[in-house]
Write a protein that binds this DNA or RNA. Sequence first.
RNA 1: GCGGCUAUCGUCCAAUGGUAGGACACGAGUUUGUGGCACUCGGUAUUUGGGUCCGAUUCCCAAUAGUCGCCCCA
Length: 465
Amino acid sequence: MYKLKKKVLGDKTIQTKKVVPVIKKKKKQVFQAIRGMKDILPGDQPYWEQIRRVSEKLARDYGFLRLNTPILEQADLFIRNIGAGTDIVEKEMYVFTTRGKDRVALRPELTAGNCRSFIQNGMQILSKPVKIFSVGNVYRYDRPQEGRQREHFQINFDAFGEKDPVLDAQVIQVAGRMLQCLGIKSFQIQVNSIGCPVCRKEYLQLLSAYWNSKKSKLCYDCKKRMKNNPLRVFDCKEDKCFQATTSAPQTVDHLCDDCRKHFKFLLEYLDELELPYAINSRLVRGLDYYTKTVFEIWSGGEEMQGKMSLGGGGRYDELIKFMGGEDTPAVGFAMGAERLVLEMKKVQAKPYKSLQPKIFLAQLGNLAKKKSLRLLSELEKNGILVAESFGRGGLKSQLRMANKRKVKFTLILGQKEALDGSIIIKDMETGVQETVNAQKLVDIIKKRIKSENVVIYKNGLNNNK
RNA sequence: GCGGCUAUCGUCCAAUGGUAGGACACGAGUUUGUGGCACUCGGUAUUUGGGUCCGAUUCCCAAUAGUCGCCCCA
């Protein structure tokens, strides 16, 4: 292997240096996951399993029907409905052109696709509200950090066709229940109402006028924000801007009658639910389709440090109509699964604990190995979980494995036993072992397991209830 | 997309301008048909590409990735 350093003079290429002797290690190509995308390893799966089970249980219990939509949609679906000016669309969306020259995008969220599906499949004929449960990966080309990936998994609940604020409350209730069921006890729900298109328009004019009057006291960024999106000035962390916001007009004070009532009822329902909520008049959300209710759920208690948004959502009464469907009010929310996992670990919530086998099958010799395969499936058919390590040869290392797996009994099937149709049952605590007829093994095990109070079969959620 | 910090076995942590060390984990063994404890042995790492240098894992630059802040959000 050698390297060439080339210098180009006119149209001639001249070799100026030739290096041969450098013997390098074979360059192995190491593939790496794409930036911002992570593997979910076996060690984390119990957390994911718990999230899966809890969300499916809640979907069932609260009457949400499952809907799966494609990861890929027409780019315009998102651009038009989430809003061309939003960060999600403007700088975070994966957009590309297919071989067929279609402009498509990896979905940055689930709601737009759900609405598309709702309209396309004529779901408005279903009895209202139409409650939809959807989960899946979403994609945002953002700069990765802890709890922020380019591919992440969202759990989404939407309710279509009902404008009553009780649905807003129910959706928030499901979100709260989800955290509780996962063992995340400390969280806060922040709610706000950003009004309907009518009152929001008036409010924004009012707000712009207000910012204008305070223009000299705002930072550079906020001067830009007041034009593009006056609501965003509320988010600024600069002290002087914060000072300016304290006397700014608030959305809740400038709602029309309908929106005001809606918000008032929602708050009354929330009081009834006994969920920890707070009104945050600064809460805006980064998607243009929201109307009236918006909310976010934050981890942790009072202080804001090291916290993250676990989920959020709101009402989008105009979206379906805007997309060309029948006028259908709707409300929904999404949770981020990766963040839930992080939070579960942080608060030491219990992950799902799968059943561990209480029996280990050890084999010695070729004949025994053959018989073991059949025996294993025999036990499996009888609902008895068995661990094994067929790849290992020695009895010693198999027993070591059995010990590590903390099993109650080890079955030993050696050459001798394989020939005369017997098998050894060894009690791992007492070390006592007994040779029995292999034909009767299943019955004997069942009896033993019963008397030893070892669970064979269990169903449903096992913790964090 | 902008700025800061970081990068060593599978994991956690050392060290060094001249042979990279430990712990945990993993594997093999201590009467090749009997586990836990103990002991012995073993494999595996300086992210990549340039530069400075006799020599770079160490210093410099860049790429990549992670992380933090901004922006935004799940």
